[in-house]
């Protein structure tokens, strides 16, 4: 099929998912509320000592972001699977991996990107310095798409299962570890006033790798789950 129709299908699917999300606006808040709630639990558990909180803040916020992203993954294919439109994607005239990429980008725009809006607030809650909050935003910007891309593989593998959610975390969380390590450490390092270009380049590398490879894996997984 010509690239024109490919771009049109890509844009169409992106428009459709954003429109669907817009029509159920209230659900957009769920990942954000979860993100804030989980982060506020930690000081209650660890105690309010600012120095201690500042030390553990990067790890806490990034683990909370990771969990928020993972919990919102189920919506990527679940509703399409139940009403049969996922089958229509499988037999569309466009390669499935491109359609999958459109859906994952839409999912990131709906659930991943908004985390950046709330992140500075949480940074203040945990006494983080200005530099580390800036680093937090940068790492979230680079990291959350990777979470959506890799998570989509897990969702595609478990879309046909009745209780796939439990297994999804076991499949996906180990694959999130590199993002967590580089991102959390970037925030901690910038807090100490050191440059974090190495971390950001590694995160960018993970992003490029997952943008190019994971849609293929997700498409293959969908074809198997629906066979």
């Amino acid at each position: 099929m010509s690239t024109a129709s490919l771009n049109r299908a890509f844009a169409l699917l992106l428009w459709r998912d954003l429109l669907l999300a817009f029509r159920r606006r209230t659900e957009l808040l769920n990942p954000l509320l979860f993100f804030v709630l989980v982060t506020t639990l930690f000081p209650l558990g660890i105690g309010a000592d600012p120095a201690l909180l500042r030390a553990v803040a990067p790890g806490i916020i990034w683990v909370a972001a990771l969990l928020a992203a993972m919990l919102s993954l189920d919506s990527v294919f679940r509703s399409d699977f139940e009403d049969g439109s996922l089958e229509q994607f499988l037999i569309s005239a466009q390669p499935l991996s491109v359609l999958v990429l459109a859906k994952v980008i839409a999912h990131w725009l709906i659930t991943g990107l908004p985390l950046l809006i709330v992140a500075p607030l949480l940074g203040l809650l945990l006494h983080m310095s200005g530099a580390s909050i800036a680093a937090l935003l940068l790492t979230l910007l680079l990291g959350t798409p990777v979470l959506s891309l890799i998570g989509a593989i897990g969702v595609a593998l478990t879309v046909g299962l009745r209780r796939g959610g439990v297994i999804l975390s076991l499949l996906v969380l180990p694959l999130y570890i590199p993002v967590l390590i580089f991102a959390a450490d970037a925030v901690a390092t910038s807090g100490a006033g050191l440059p974090i270009t190495a971390h950001l380049s590694l995160l960018a590398a993970l992003l490029v790798l997952s943008v190019s490879l994971s849609p293929l894996a997700t498409a293959a997984a969908l074809k198997i789950s629906l066979s």
Binding site: L20, E82, D83, G84, S85, Q88
Partner: peptide
């Protein structure tokens, strides 16, 4: 293809 499930999005 039109299967058992219509493939129609309710919110569209």
């Amino acid at each position: 293809y039109v299967g058992h499930r219509d493939g129609v999005k309710q919110d569209l």
